[in-house]
Structures are given as structure tokens and as C-alpha cells.
Design a protein around this nucleic acid. Structure first.
Lengths: 346, 346
DNA sequence: GTGAAAGCGCTAACAT
DNA sequence: ATGTTAGCGCTTTCAC
């Protein structure tokens, strides 16, 4: 255990290398060498410096270090809200990977209603001390013109159709939605109804388009999609509508939360799941296995998305030139108890 | 709209004030004045400088600024995991408040299994460029000895019993659990069973203690608590046990996720909610109103917790001296459909 | 209204 | 093995 740090008054500044140097009666350069673990320091000297550091309560000043090196060992994350499961998990994974790589993470929330919000956020972030930026944001916000990298700072984008000029990482939404829809079709349902996410959301549009395409490929009629807002409540409302239609036997919800609401509506309407109606979700959120019944859903590997973001970003930071293109993370179906073959009573 | 930023090659460094100054044919001091919005600059000069900044694609270097000012305009957040609803919402609110106050947020995740993890995280964070620190962490991790403010940096702690030497902000767990238990008692249930969170969690212990105290005050027998791990799955398992006991008519789950699992167990066991068994949760997570049935629960105002953290932290940063004590944010009961009076068939 | 000089804390380069 | 010098980009202080 080291000595307790020196108590300092409110007015005195933090101890600098020079202070430590004075205490240890060496040059500040030698202190620097000790701090950075250089080998060319005499053991006695090192001990003395270490003791002085301890006594002074010395901490390196990262601002000075950054100023000198031109690097910040920090990456910025721009996001609209933490309040969705996916954003949170992605952020979690990005943070974990960057910590591993020795980078800290600076958060920069953006008010969506701000005109040009993302661009200004990226600009602000570039003024912050960051070596690279991850943008976790739905598509339409990323107006291409407004985000032509105003900074020269490497950027990776998650969950968007930002186009080929950027480096983007995302779950394979198309394949995920295809798997969900196809699973229901394979079970023998004549068609699959869709409760979609808000049209403004890129991922919602992708999933809906893939659902439609899968149905069309199968030569199956495409019922009109019902558009929700990702919330359980909106799922419940559309669920009520669908529960009232006897011809509805299979529902693909664009996320698990809406699926939860749909389940509630179905139960309240006396439609058994999965005997009377099959329900499938998207995300595989933590407690989807505790729904009643446990939800069959499409698992998104947010951890992998976050990890790949950092891999790509570090590549960009090191190579210092654009490396555009999309990296897709596979999604896979998790079979639980909310889907079954339609009961034969036509 | 401004001009497109200058394209720069990979090797050239970012434009500095001096570059802008040269372009505008003024001193870099004048550029500084313009950047900082000082008034004592001639309008013509200002225009010229602005144009030069635009042309060069200039961004202020925050490292240099911090080095000079000794301030970072940044706060650090130490947390174990983002993957709980409460942590995420708290972080969200902290971030929102700090952004409002002109501070950025640096994240510092801690591996729990690290001995002395928090202390070392705080140390690391102090080496980062932060003016203050918020610790979102469960109690037992916060071994008091190990966290005697190794840094002199202001710290605020959330969700813990860190004791009176620190500044802490938290939901009023005790009152929340009391309200939940009392509600069930008031409904006429003879006693209330408890599915608790993990013993390691401070909030879990607080809620359990308050549940017990409320029962004892009412002169009611205290059934043995079942200890879960916050997950829906653990709620389900304990729910199965409780569903099998006909004398169980009221259950207080320490969080909503476990309540979800309990609901599932009850349904599968043919126990109607709330007619046969009442269930109450804690947190009021976003889709608790879409559970089947919609969950009566204790609402935690995480937004307020986060906001108060920043208020307290900014106080500390400005006054630069300890200001210990706990600030409690009230919780309140949200009545929905999972609780009712016990049916009379004793 | 503008500029020149000094220095924040650190480290790379060059002595010794 | 250790010390000295210089300079990263910015702002504060003091001249003019």
C-alpha cells in the first residue's frame, strides 16, 4: 500500500513533474522517464522519484501529454439516445473494445431536433480531444451533405445507410428479417403480418423491405404493414387490431418490445400464442426468454457490432485514410415458444 | 453555408492558430480573440480571420486549451456495466445534464473482478482529463478504504451506501420498497412474499430490508425471501416455486425483469394475475405497461438521479471542497393491473 | 484594436 | 545514467 496522498488546499494547483523533480532532486526529464517506464534509470533514482511522486500525489497531466504527442488516446461516440437496448449494447461493446485498446470513450449526445445536429456534434467532438468518432444514429439524420467529414477525423457509422463513402458497421438487417419471415412461412403460415418500426428509422425500413421481399419471393400475398414506434404500447395497439382478424396467424414484429405488446393484446383477446397466432420478434433483448410465452426472435450481436466498430476505427486512425464500405454482422434466429404451425381448422 | 474544409494529406498536421494567423495576416493572439468571441476586434479583421479559419479548416485544440486553463470541461463516469436499465438511464441523464452545463462525458468501464477495480479506475480517470467523477456502482465494490479519493478530484456516487464521507445521490429505495409492500398489505393480503435481487447489490439489500421492516411493523409474518439475480429467468424459477404454494397471494419482486419472469411462471402454472396472485415490481422500466398484465411497480426517476449527480458534482467542482451527504430522490408507486385484493375463498 | 512574450506540463532530441 | 533545451497550441499579461 502506498502512502495516503498529500492533502492540498483549494487554491494550490496539482503537482507537476517539476514539483516531483524538485522533491526527488532530479530533473523533470528523469521523472518523465520513470513515469513512462524507461529502463535507463538507476534503481536508486527510480525509487527516489517514485517516493516523491507518491508524496506529492502526482498524476500525469494528459492534456500536456496530448499536446505534445498530438494523440488523445480517446474516441468519441455520437448518439441520439442511450434509451434503446441496441444503442446501449453497442455503446457497451464499443467502450469495452476501446478500453482494451487503451482508448477512453467520450460521449456526445445529440438532440435530434437540432437542425444539422450530427454535423455540429461531429464538429464539436473534433474540438474535443478525440482521435476518431463512432456515430450510432439512425439513417435519415445522417444527411449526407451535412456530414462530409468536416474534420478530417476518422469516422465509423453504425446502423445506417450512410452509403459507400463511409465506413459503416451494422447487423445484417435484411438477412435477419428474411429468416424471421421465412421461418413463419416454413411453419406453414399462408402469410405473415408485419408490425414495423417507425419509418424514419433505417433499420425499420430495411426490415420491412426484407419482409416484403421474402413474402413476394414466396408468391405469398403481402398484407399491409402496421407502423409502430418501437414501444410496447404501439405493439399492443396494433396487436389489438390484428387479434380481431381471424385470418391472422403469424406476426413478425420489428422489435421485441412491440412483440411484447402484441403478446399482451393477443392474450387479452383470447388468441392463444402460438396455437392460434405465432409471434416473432427482433433483437433478442435480455428478457425475451421470460416473455409469456418465451419469444422466438432474431438475435442481434450488438457486442460484435461494437467490437468491429473499434477494429475499423483503429484501422482508420492508424492508416489515416478513408476505408469506406459496409461490414455486416450476421443475425440469427433464436427459436423459443411463440411460434408454431398454424392449427388445422380452415 | 461555409466553404468545404480544406483537404489535407495524411501526413500534414492539423492547422493551428498560427496557420490561421499567417493566412489572415494577423497575430495568433487576434485569432484567439476571434475564436473566443472577444469584442475588441475590428469587424474587418474579424471577417478576415473567420475566412482564414474556414479556409484552413481550423479547429481549436482542446488539449492546448486545457493545458493552459487547467480545466477540462469534462467529467468522468465510472461504471461496472451499461447493461442494466438503471445504469443506462442514469448515464443518459448525467450525460444530458453535463452536456447542458458544457461538459463532455468520458466513460470508464471497470471490470468487477479486478481487485481494487474502482480505486484504480478513479486513478486512471484522474489521469484522464476530467474535472470531476461520477461513480455508478453497487455498494460492496466501493470498499471504503480503497476509495479515499486518491486524487483530489471531486466525486459523486450513485446507488451505494458509501457512507457519509462521500457525496451520494440515490433513489429512495427504502421508501419505494415500503410503498410496494404496504400497497399489497392495504389491498388485504395477509403477507407479501419477496423475490430479492442479489445480495451483493446494495439496492437489493435495501429493498429487502425495507420489505421486511414494513411487514414487521404491520405485525405480519415474514416469509423467507427468495434471492434472484435481477434476470427474468431467475424470476421465472422462483415464480414456479411460489406458484406451487396456494398460500401465496402477493409477491414483491425487487425489479421489473424478475417480475416479468414471475408473471410467466404464474401463467404457466394456471395462477391468474391479479385474481389469484398479485405481483408488484420495482423500476418501472419502459415496457412494464406492456406486460401481461400491465405491471404495478415502483417508479424510479433515474433522470432526476442523473441530473442531481451533475448538480452536486458541479457544486463540488466549483467550491473545490468536500460536501458529503446523501441526496435521496423519491420513488412512487405506479398502479396498473397486476395487483388486486385477494379473492375470498379461504 | 492589435501584437509580442511568456509559460501551462510534458517529452523528443541532444548533450554530458 | 542523467540533465538541458526546445516546442507542442493556446491564452494571459503587458506593450503599443
Amino acid at each position: 500500500m502506498t502512502n495516503p496522498p498529500q492533502r492540498r488546499t483549494a487554491t494550490s494547483r496539482l503537482p507537476s513533474m517539476a514539483d516531483v523533480a524538485a522533491l526527488a532532486k532530479v530533473s523533470s526529464q528523469t521523472v518523465s522517464r520513470v513515469v513512462n517506464g524507461r529502463t535507463n534509470v538507476d534503481d536508486d533514482t527510480r525509487e527516489r522519484v517514485l517516493a516523491a511522486m507518491d508524496e506529492a500525489g502526482y498524476r500525469p497531466n494528459s492534456a500536456a501529454r496530448s499536446l505534445k504527442s498530438g494523440q488523445f488516446r480517446s474516441i468519441g461516440v455520437v448518439l441520439y439516445t442511450l434509451s434503446t437496448f441496441g444503442n446501449m449494447r453497442t455503446l457497451d461493446a464499443v467502450t469495452a473494445s476501446s478500453t482494451l485498446a487503451g482508448y477512453s470513450v467520450t460521449l456526445l449526445p445529440v438532440a435530434l431536433d437540432t437542425e444539422n445536429g450530427v454535423a455540429s456534434a461531429v464538429t464539436r467532438l473534433a474540438e474535443q480531444a478525440v482521435d476518431g468518432i463512432v456515430i450510432i444514429m439512425e439513417a435519415q439524420v445522417l444527411d449526407r451533405a451535412s456530414i462530409t467529414l468536416p474534420t478530417g477525423v476518422p469516422v465509423v457509422i453504425v446502423d445506417s445507410d450512410a452509403g459507400s463513402q463511409f465506413t459503416v458497421v451494422d447487423t445484417d438487417q435484411v438477412d435477419g428479417a428474411r429468416q424471421a419471415t421465412q421461418h413463419l412461412l416454413d411453419l406453414g403460415h399462408t402469410t405473415v403480418w408485419h408490425v414495423a418500426g417507425p419509418d424514419a428509422a433505417f433499420s425499420a425500413r430495411r426490415r420491412a423491405a426484407s419482409w416484403r421481399a421474402t413474402l413476394e419471393e414466396a408468391g405469398t400475398p403481402v398484407p399491409p404493414p402496421l407502423v409502430g414506434d418501437w414501444s410496447g404500447k404501439s405493439g399492443y395497439q396494433h396487436g389489438l387490431t390484428l387479434a380481431a382478424r381471424k385470418d391472422v396467424t403469424a406476426i413478425f414484429a420489428a422489435n421485441d418490445q412491440m412483440a411484447l405488446g402484441i403478446l399482451r393484446a393477443l392474450h387479452e383477446s383470447g388468441r392463444a400464442v402460438p396455437q392460434s397466432v405465432s409471434v416473432i420478434g427482433f433483437d433478442d433483448m435480455p428478457d425475451a426468454d421470460s416473455f409469456y410465452p418465451p419469444l422466438t426472435t432474431v438475435h442481434q450481436d450488438f457486442g460484435e457490432v461494437g467490437r468491429l466498430c473499434m477494429v475499423k476505427l483503429l484501422e482508420l486512425i492508424e492508416s489515416n485514410r478513408p476505408h469506406p464500405g459496409a461490414t455486416l454482422v450476421p443475425a440469427h434466429l433464436v427459436l423459443r415458444s411463440s411460434t408454431a404451425s398454424p392449427s388445422r381448422r380452415d
